[in-house]
Simulated scan of single mutants.
Amino acid sequence: MLTLIHFTFCPFCQRVRLALGYKNLVFTETAARFYGPEHFRSISGFERLPVIVYPDGSRQGESLEIIAELDRRFPVTPPLHQGAIAVADLEAVLAWRARISGMLFRLIAPTLPQYPGLGDDPRAMTFYRERMEGWLGDTMEGLQARRHQWYASMEADLNGITDRVARHGFYTPVFSVADTLIAGDLTGLRLLEGITLQPELNAYFARVEAAAGISLLPEPLKQGQNL
């Protein structure tokens, strides 16, 4: 059986959860604590998560590489790359994601402690705060206070992707790796206080979750354990 070692709150981990769910692959989840690279190595062999453990015992990190490997290892499952999305379309969504990265994380960083295993764990929050504030150059409180500014900075890019998924249903007419990236990465926006997302974007999140049979919002894990 597959085992996914991940953080409940991590956008990159959410990508893989969506891929596994869409492919209807049976997997167990191990929710790691956000205690730092040494701890991550001790439980997964990698300094970053997600990490997937395959039935043969081999392990792999990096979310998009994992998703590509799932296509290769399980060819009878619905594809997420070839047959689901053209190379040019995938390159376009990756360029869009790179363009919004800074603003996106300024927006979602203060929301992610709503997930169990982060905001309710002082040790994890200490590491998370130090890492996020060092990277983003502002305090959690400052980021939260300026959320309307950050949102306005990426609203045009967000509207563009919203228009596309509303038109096609998914990023293309069928679920693909692009949807694992968009929905997994943008889910934190749904937790923003005082900011209402477009109904079309919320409808898209619902379609993606239904297609994968996975909920992306904070909820207790139904299986696995906390380490």
Score class of each variant (00 low, 15 high):
G224V: 07
G119V: 09
W135V: 08
A166D: 09
G213L: 03
M125T: 05
K222L: 09
L4H: 04
V177A: 07
A88Q: 15
L94H: 12
A183Q: 01
L197R: 00
R123I: 07
I85D: 05
A178I: 07
L2W: 01
F9Y: 11
L201Q: 02
R106Q: 07
L107F: 03
F170T: 05
A109L: 13
A152G: 10
G83I: 06
I43G: 02
S44Y: 06
T28C: 11
L49C: 08
E141R: 06
Y22R: 09
H39Q: 04
I66V: 14
A183P: 04
R15V: 14
H168F: 12
G134V: 08
L64W: 09
R59A: 01
E62P: 07
L94P: 11
G213K: 02
H39R: 06
F74E: 02
P110Y: 01
A68L: 12
A203H: 09
F12L: 05
S42W: 06
A178T: 09
I100R: 12
D89S: 13
R97E: 15
V208F: 06
T3R: 13
D89F: 12
F205A: 04
L186C: 12
T8P: 07
L20H: 04
R17S: 15
I85C: 10
L20W: 03
Q82Y: 12
A68G: 12
L136R: 05
E209P: 08
D120H: 04
R106L: 03
W135Q: 07
D120R: 03
F127R: 09
P173S: 00
R123N: 07
E209I: 04
T30I: 13
E91Y: 13
E155R: 15
S101P: 10
A206V: 02
D185M: 10
A86W: 08
Q14I: 03
G188S: 01
D157C: 12
V26A: 14
G137T: 00
L221Q: 11
F7I: 06
I100V: 15
G160E: 07
L112Y: 07
P113W: 00
